[in-house]
Design a protein around this nucleic acid. Structure first.
Lengths: 201, 201
DNA sequence: CGATAACGTTAATGATGGCTAACATCCGTG
DNA sequence: CACGGATGTTAGCCATCATTAACGTTATCG
């Protein structure tokens, strides 16, 4: 009867609540913006009311910070995994595209918040998020550079940002197309756009 | 000496102030979001302080509404002009790309606000802005449909949104590349992405 | 000159919202 | 059973903010 074994529900549903709150907050932030959403709004979205959130987060800004940190580190981690998994740059690029597309289709709210609300994150965390975002971009740029060594890095960086813009358009085209069709469409458009970017003189 | 002729400065610099305020507000809204900017912030950005804005706009929401209405009607108008000017769909598409690229490069703040803050516009104006945005998209879809009649409209719409995402990435890649290089890069990427989108089976 | 309209200013008001305090409840554990 | 920690609740505090009020100051024009 050691505590470890009996702990079928260690602290009941601690992590669940946090995740639930983060998810609801992401949806609300995406729709109305960080300052357009009140603590009370977030609370009632998960069935508790207002100040209950302070049992899980130290404040509204901390909540946002954790949200953005989670997204950017997940993106960066999956990119790093993909890059080390394959030696062929073509395959790697396809895998990078696939993970970003999956993310954009499955988590449109997080995508929106991720590139709108960085300015509202307080300073200690902001730097770290920026760092992860930069590393993520550099992961792409490195792969592109392997494919086209003659292309200047600045151009590759601009290309990468443009591709992110293309892929992250999913929050806008919301339900125009089922994910099943959207996925290959975005992949084909992105591949073609990249080829055009690096092959132009 | 009729008032018309003497009116070299009819109401002094009335329109200037309004435009100045709209421009400053756009910059601030783009950076911190509608609710993250106070009336006082906007005022001091143009050298007046706070409630002076009520001499020019009936309120904060009205200011935003006018801003978005201005953008969306300008985009829609320039698209309509381009479409009627040329008979060749290829030329038309190139012209549409050019105007959107110009806009994205010269007015990044307006672009940001345009697709983030619609939700904060009060109802009478919101519908009208949505209408203009829809018309703008349809202008693109019509041209694309002429080029590729076999492609289903929903796919063309999704393609158009993805292209907007690509072109409107300029606020993110800010100063990576000079406009002189950015412009043809975006054009080439967009053309290639469109071709890929409509040619896939 | 003197009215008046355009354009600003500062003070007050009323709402909202983030956050803290004080006070339950529930549950696993000694 | 009694304790304590995790988790909620409501009421209150204080700051911020949009908006209005009341009050100048010009400058154009009759």
């Amino acid at each position: 009867m050691r505590n470890v074994t009996t702990a079928s529900t260690p602290t009941r549903n601690r992590g669940n609540r946090r995740a639930e709150i983060l998810e609801a907050a992401a949806r609300l932030f995406a729709a109305r913006g960080f300052h357009g959403v009140s603590i009370e709004d977030i609370g009632s979205a998960v069935g508790v009311s207002g100040p209950a959130l302070y049992r899980h987060f130290t404040g509204k800004e901390a909540l946002l910070a954790e949200m953005l940190l989670d997204i950017s580190s997940r993106l960066r981690a999956s990119a790093a995994a993909v890059v080390t998994a394959s030696a062929d740059p073509h395959e790697t690029l396809d895998a990078l595209l696939d993970t970003q597309i999956t993310f954009a289709i499955e988590q449109p709210a997080l995508i929106s918040v991720h590139d709108r609300e960085l300015g509202n994150v307080p300073e200690p965390a902001r730097r770290q998020i920026r760092r992860l975002q930069r590393l993520y971009v550099e992961e792409w740029v490195t792969v592109l550079a392997e494919l086209h060594p003659s292309c200047p890095p600045a151009r590759l960086r601009a290309t990468t940002h443009a591709i992110f813009g293309l892929l992250n358009s999913t929050p806008h085209s919301a339900n125009e197309l089922p994910a099943q069709d959207m996925r290959p469409l975005l992949h084909a458009m992105a591949r073609a756009a990249i080829d055009a970017a690096v092959n132009e003189r």
